[in-house]
Amino acid sequence: MRSTMRTIRPTWLLAVAISAAVIGWVVTELTSRASLALPVLPLSSLVTMGLIAVVCLILGLKVRRWRDGNRDRVLDPLLAARTLVLAQACAYAGAMLFGWHAGILLDQLPTIALRADLGVIWQIVALLSGGVVMVAVGIAVERFCKLPPEDSEPTPKPRPKRESHGEEEFA
């Protein structure tokens, strides 16, 4: 039995982003009413997001090089599988971070004109961009890990239909 992993579905990424946006908006409303600070990640989290994306991309390029024929070294199948899982996790985490900060930004849009300091708005925009980069890297690396169909495998021939002569066939 051969098991295959499912590819990232854009509709699921969109669902994650929308769900996170709704939750981020609700949490921002609640924290604003309680006179608490906005629930925005610090800018230093961009470093972590960037490191995850870079590691994912480096591992993905290694798999892609092997897939494209540069096979001077043996590729560990476990490394390839882990790279695929990392790519998918990167994409979903990016969608979550994007959605969360999009919800916060949507809550803050009516108050932008009242703000003297727009630093937190630019911080939110930077984190939105980081989420988009993570999604893009995750999708790209997942595609790097996809193997092309083998030409050596024979294509299955369709089975000829049996003609029935008024008799019913039971399996």
Rank of each mutant, 00 (worst) to 15 (best):
R9I: 06
A87R: 03
C56Y: 01
V54I: 13
R71I: 00
L127Q: 07
V22W: 07
T28H: 01
A102V: 07
G99M: 01
P110C: 06
V26L: 13
E169H: 07
R73Q: 11
R115E: 11
I23G: 02
L41T: 06
T28F: 00
A80I: 02
R159N: 12
G138V: 02
L14N: 10
A140F: 06
R2P: 05
L30Q: 15
N70S: 09
G50H: 02
Q108W: 03
G99C: 02
R73L: 10
P156Y: 10
G130I: 03
T7D: 14
A140G: 00
V132G: 12
L86F: 07
L97T: 05
G166C: 02
L13W: 05
S129V: 11
A20L: 07
A89P: 00
A113D: 10
V135E: 07
V63N: 04
L118W: 12
S32C: 01
D72K: 04
A93H: 13
V63R: 01
A91M: 05
R64K: 15
R162W: 09
N70R: 12
D72H: 06
L114P: 00
V141M: 04
L128A: 01
R143A: 15
W25A: 13
V54H: 07
A113T: 06
E167R: 13
Q123T: 14
A37T: 11
G119N: 08
V120D: 10
L147I: 05
P160Y: 06
R2A: 10
A126V: 01
A102I: 03
F170N: 10
W25H: 13
G99Y: 01
D76M: 06
V133E: 07
E142I: 02
T4W: 12
L36D: 10
M5D: 14
Y92C: 05
P149D: 12
A136M: 09
L14E: 07
V137K: 05
L128V: 00
C90K: 00
P42F: 05
V135P: 00
V135W: 04
R159M: 14
D72E: 11
R73Y: 08
